[in-house]
């Protein structure tokens, strides 16, 4: 059983231990900002490593991967939005905020998938790493556009319901629209200059242009301690995810199911794109599937708090962190690997 071999990875076991500490109500508390510090290291290390490998990459395949990263990043939130609306469990703005999370990616899940493939001795391409960097941002933009459309729909409904002739209301509405358009450009800027995007892309460039002798000295930092740091990071994230599990009742069974169905849809799309369009190996296609299946819990939540303040944060945080992240780490990664194996034959 592949799912059992995945569970026996130290990194995944620490994730489960993190959840368990919450279940037994342990007094374990991580110091403030630890996960943030560890994630800066992880992105930097994987960026340096990948950039170094990508220096010898084929430009055509790299550009093709970038293009498909954009396509996935723009399409997945729209699929998610339509499914959420069909469930009739959330409002338009909540649906926009949640679907933005599902179009974006989780670096933690991606790194766990790399640990899984390394452990199983499966080779994979380095191109999915560029896709990881690209896919952070487009979904945020789609989320904003969906929210802007949702606000217009809601305003239209309201003005239909209210008696006409209320000019004062109309005036304040147009004021709001002006403010939002002004902040839309700044949110666009934020989406593409997001901290994790800058660390990842910057480290990839440094890894690609550095002298080989200089990179060699970095290997203890970049390679040797990487898995240990990943364990520590997943330990804390398991703890955080465990806390979110307690909010499950708040989101309800239908939304919780969305947190599992949506990564399955993304994973299937990812396997197909990875194998048949980008022509990757089974390992590479598994990574593309993990990218398409994962939901952001680092970059997107603060962006959505700012851009769609009307949406309820406990919906999107519980779904992405409490359901989809554990699902992908424990079940999704071996499942997508199996799927890629079956389709590669």
């Amino acid at each position: 059983m592949p799912s059992i071999s995945n569970l026996l990875l130290p990194a995944v076991l620490f994730f489960v231990l993190g959840i368990f500490t919450r279940v037994i109500k342990s007094d374990l508390r991580f110091p403030p900002d630890l996960a943030k510090i560890l994630s800066i290291y992880l992105l930097m290390a994987i960026g340096l490593h990948g950039g170094n490998a990508l220096a010898k990459a084929d430009l055509f395949i790299a550009l093709n991967s970038v293009m498909w990263a954009f396509i996935l990043g723009f399409t997945l939130p729209i699929i998610g939005y339509l499914i959420l609306l069909a469930t009739r469990k959330v409002g338009l703005l909540d649906a926009a905020a949640i679907s933005a999370h599902y179009g974006s990616v989780s670096a933690g899940t991606f790194l766990t998938a790399i640990a899984y493939l390394d452990n199983a001795g499966i080779k994979y391409e380095d191109y999915p790493l560029i896709m990881l960097a690209i896919m952070e941002s487009p979904a945020i933009v789609v989320g904003l556009l969906l929210a802007a459309k949702a606000r217009r729909t809601i305003a239209a409904r309201k003005s239909k319901a209210a008696s006409h002739g209320d000019e004062k209301l109309a005036l304040t509405n147009s004021d709001n629209v002006d403010n939002e358009e002004a902040s839309f450009t700044s949110l666009l800027h934020d989406a593409f200059t997001n901290g994790s995007v800058v660390i990842l892309l910057g480290s990839m460039v440094i890894g690609a242009i550095s002298l080989p002798s200089g990179m060699e000295k970095l290997f203890p930092f970049v390679d040797d301690i990487f898995m240990g740091v990943l364990c520590l990071f997943l330990f804390e994230m398991g703890n955080v995810a465990g806390k979110r599990l307690g909010d499950l009742r708040q989101v309800g069974i239908v939304l919780a199911l969305f947190g599992i169905v949506m990564p399955l849809i993304g994973g299937v799309l990812g396997v197909y794109i990875g194998l048949n369009i980008l022509d990757f190996s089974v390992g590479g296609a598994t990574l593309v599937a993990v990218l398409a299946a994962s939901a952001s819990y680092i970059a997107v939540p603060p962006a959505m708090r700012l851009a769609i303040p009307e949406a309820n944060p406990s919906y999107y945080l519980t779904l992405s962190l409490g359901i989809t992240f554990p699902f992908n780490v424990i079940v999704g990664i071996p499942l997508f690997h199996k799927l890629a194996q079956l389709n590669a034959i």
């Binding site: 991580f30 943030k36 939540p301 309820n312 944060p313 406990s314």
Partner: peptide
């Protein structure tokens, strides 16, 4: 609007 006790530093 829910619990706000994120100590990971992200949010």
């Amino acid at each position: 609007s829910g619990v706000r006790s994120d100590m990971t530093g992200f949010d």
